[in-house]
Computed example of a mutant assay.
Amino acid sequence: MDWLNANEALTLLGTRPQTLYANVSRGRIKAMRDPKDSRKSLYRGEDVRKLAKRAAGRRRQETVAAEAIRYGEPVMPSSLSTIENGRLLYRGRDAVVLSEKATLEDIAVLLWEAAPFQLPARSRATTPSLQAAFVALAERAAQDAPSIGRSELILRLEAISVLGTLASSLVGGRSATDPLHVALAVAWDRAGAADIIRRALVLLADHELNASTFATRVTISTGAALSAGVLAGMAALSGPLHGGAAVAAQALAGQARTMGAEAAVLARLGQGMPVPAFGHPLYPDGDIRAAALFGQFTPPEHYAALHAAAYRVTGERANIDFALAALTEAYDLPHEAPMVLFMLARCVGWLAHGLEQAQQGQLIRPRAHYVGAGVER
């Protein structure tokens, strides 16, 4: 049996003396008086090395977990969607290929593993708006039954109802039996935009474990209602680093029209801010969703110039948020159209993840890496 002095033990453990003493008092490390100096202690080497190895493992796990949260390795199992070699796949099927013909309702059937369905007749009670959507989902979240302990069939039926509630709030009551892309085109009085709206909705339906989807899954993991999970997703989506990025792209495009595209880009960078709606960590060769949309319409001239200038200066290509901003102006849609399209489409994905999380039945509860006062290092 070997014994280590305090300096040797602390070097192996990588901690402060207080931590060493705490481990001794808790029985994790055996100690004895140093025969050569009764004022000092020796520590059993086997115990110290075992604890040091365990601590190193924890540190590696913390590093992996922290990096995973930032576009790193996958952190939870899901059979819904993934990004693989620049392709977005819904249950193994290419989303770009699906967008050629599928509707958002078709994608719901695929992701929810449900039978074909028709949404409930949409309400005419309120003027369609983003505000109405938040209010409607909040009212449901306060009343709907928890997701825990309910059958898959019942939850799928509830998912249809929740999507119907959101559609009523964002689309309104006209064309209640039409597919959602047609209903939106009618509501916006832009019949010619129906096909590009359909494509956008399909491409936006899911995107594996993005911020809003993670918020939804965390909420459902507590047993909360599907509507509560969707409400959590909506709140996360509203941020400027997520679904709200198209608003910044619209503002930058306005500057490009007045001061020139390259000047607008350089002004943005000169303020120490990235160019909004360009680049995506999961698509190093460019966001395939944006490319698929740009292949179907001609963006306004100042958007095309901005796209070229941003790529020339930054080396980054436009992402889906920029494409949504461009098609909004190209088809003269309402200013909030990017968020409406994003929210309505992603609701299908949120509900799919909510259904999957409810079946897994596990609480999502990460640990915080505390770095505040009193931390022993």
Rank of each mutant, 00 (worst) to 15 (best):
G260W: 05
P179E: 09
I160P: 09
D321R: 02
V202K: 04
L293T: 06
T82A: 15
D287H: 09
L209A: 10
S78F: 02
D2A: 15
L20F: 06
A115Q: 15
Q18S: 15
A253E: 05
A205K: 02
W350N: 08
M234Y: 06
D195R: 09
N5F: 00
G372P: 12
Y21G: 04
Q143A: 14
T258D: 05
G164Q: 05
A352K: 02
R49A: 09
T213A: 09
E376N: 12
H335V: 13
A249R: 00
I83H: 08
Q360L: 15
R377G: 11
K50W: 00
T298N: 11
A121T: 14
R26I: 13
L204T: 01
A145V: 14
V171M: 08
A249N: 04
I160D: 06
S38M: 07
G244M: 02
R91C: 11
D321Q: 06
A183M: 01
G149I: 12
L137V: 04
T222V: 11
W188F: 10
A141M: 13
A358P: 08
A205I: 01
Q118G: 12
E329C: 05
A142G: 14
A56Y: 03
V75A: 15
D321P: 03
A132T: 12
G372R: 10
P281C: 01
A323M: 04
A194V: 11
T63H: 12
